[in-house]
Write a protein that binds this DNA or RNA. Sequence first.
DNA 1: ATGAAAGCGCTAACAT
DNA 2: ATGTTAGCGCTTTCAT
Lengths: 349, 349
Amino acid sequence: MTKRPRSTGRTTIADVAARAGVSAITVSRALRTPDRVQAATRARVEEAIRELDYLPDAAASTLASRNSNVVGVILPSVTNKVFLGTLRGIYDVAEEGGLQVQISNSRYSQDEEERLLRIFLSQRPAGLIVTGIDQSEATRKLLRSAPCPVVQITETGPDPLDMMVGFDHAAAGALAARHLAEQGYRRIGFLGARQDPRSVRRQSGFRDSLEQLGLFDPARVLFSPDQSSVGLGSRQLLDLLRVDPKADAVLCNNDDLALGALFACQRQGLDVPNRFGICGFNDVEFMAFTSPSLTSVRTPRRQIGIRAMRLIMARIDDPAAVFAPEHLAVELSQRRSTGRDEDATSTPG
Amino acid sequence: MTKRPRSTGRTTIADVAARAGVSAITVSRALRTPDRVQAATRARVEEAIRELDYLPDAAASTLASRNSNVVGVILPSVTNKVFLGTLRGIYDVAEEGGLQVQISNSRYSQDEEERLLRIFLSQRPAGLIVTGIDQSEATRKLLRSAPCPVVQITETGPDPLDMMVGFDHAAAGALAARHLAEQGYRRIGFLGARQDPRSVRRQSGFRDSLEQLGLFDPARVLFSPDQSSVGLGSRQLLDLLRVDPKADAVLCNNDDLALGALFACQRQGLDVPNRFGICGFNDVEFMAFTSPSLTSVRTPRRQIGIRAMRLIMARIDDPAAVFAPEHLAVELSQRRSTGRDEDATSTPG
DNA sequence: ATGAAAGCGCTAACAT
DNA sequence: ATGTTAGCGCTTTCAT
């Protein structure tokens, strides 16, 4: 005795209403604001929904309410493992809040970022998350007048478009550089893959810090146009030794490079940490388990995702709320790969 | 005063039409099927769009056309690096086709998968991609009657819901097991993290294969409830040696475990490959660069994503088209970690 | 607590 | 090649 579907074949709120003996708007309310509908009415509506296997139409809802539940995220790369932790944070919080996440991929291009942003804006997003602080002027303008909360993530800086969660990449680079110097390394190199603005700022923190100590040599800074990988780290380590056979340590711009550097040292028979120190960046899980374990700069990737989504939800709840940029802390996970003497304690986890 | 309708302030297609001196439908056509509009008219429309800074409303378009451009993807985990390659393939093709990708995360739960599917269906997706073949009956029913193309990925099997792209996990497990046996290993273990249906089938291929050779011992099969990680691989290797101190090789259910196992061997002073052989699964990039390099089963992760999206696009173009399940090939990347004598050639890549 | 009417902004279907 | 009409399915506004 089921009701005959309508022209599109889709069961609508009107079908449910008829079945439950109420009006359409009551069904709508039972779905969105259940406490404004009497329990008995609500029960009948819910039963009708189940019987008819009703699925709401998100497009109709968005159109009528001028509001979707989609949060758009623009990342420079979807392949990059670095963003995995942040994505996890984003998804975890999004689920709590009943929000849908849509990721897109700007491939490190400002023009592509603007194009993607326009696509997102056409969906009346509930919120937008963009990576970094280097948007084009057109993009900045669109974001400033976006009809939804906007968060810039990963990096903090001046002139926030709206909200901001990240850390200071130059300071993080400096932290690692100072650590290597303190451990007694004197000919310290820098390995980086395809540059993005964050890499550049990390390197400049590294440079400034070593310059102050009189230890900086630009010849020991290697950037590759290739994508980051373990293989690249191995190759770059050999390159570094070619440039400066006496190089005695390296800051790797991410952990894959550090792992590659470690393997290259093993193959070359270079003792890590005594002959050669290695420090990575991000502190992904494996760094604690290599042999020897690898020092790295721990970055709050998951926290960035969590905080960004929480800011969006807070702003949805209270559109007038103002939130200051959040500068998250970065610290060093000191391990054996930079501990020339005894030292080096760090709990795996 | 008559009832004042809602004001949105949003620039609409009608505004553009007025500005360009045409009707709304002409603007719509200029946007979607430009070749059905005269060049001069089109030019005026485009100018009006620019002048007014018009952005289409995706919800209105979806509602009117009964069709979004969103492809929904349900993965068991968004954190798992294994899916990164597949995601890359999906995004690469989606961009070509002007489709938006929406990922969600079933956390290996069938109920959650069904819930997510309902959310996707409420968006009138252009296509759906689900992982594996172990959907609940309710989910299968929803997918069978979904008004869009559906692809099951990662694994092939009987009873496809619609289209299918993957490989045979049992055969892949068997391939690795035979390889280890052929290399002369005799007490071969298996390490796996939190089980999913694919892990189980890989293990059963491994088991069947070794049973035929009289080499299987269930005591050497270790599954952990924990998530896969390098640290887990290290711990499990030690566990295996505790269970069977004479164990001489291990098939790791993924490459992180294999890397962890390698580090544990290094720490234990076990010679790899002569005292102990290690084979991983997936063949991620770093496997070719460890020291010694690690043998692994190469799986076509990126291809799976590419083919899945291409199938969706092909079906959108021709809704009547029928596509048989695609069984992709899996092969062994043989490297030093399983080459007891000389042997072992494999070019890094 | 519930309902009626009026759109939200766009496109399908049918004109011309 | 372009326009007219009539919704798509829902939620807002205003009323009871």
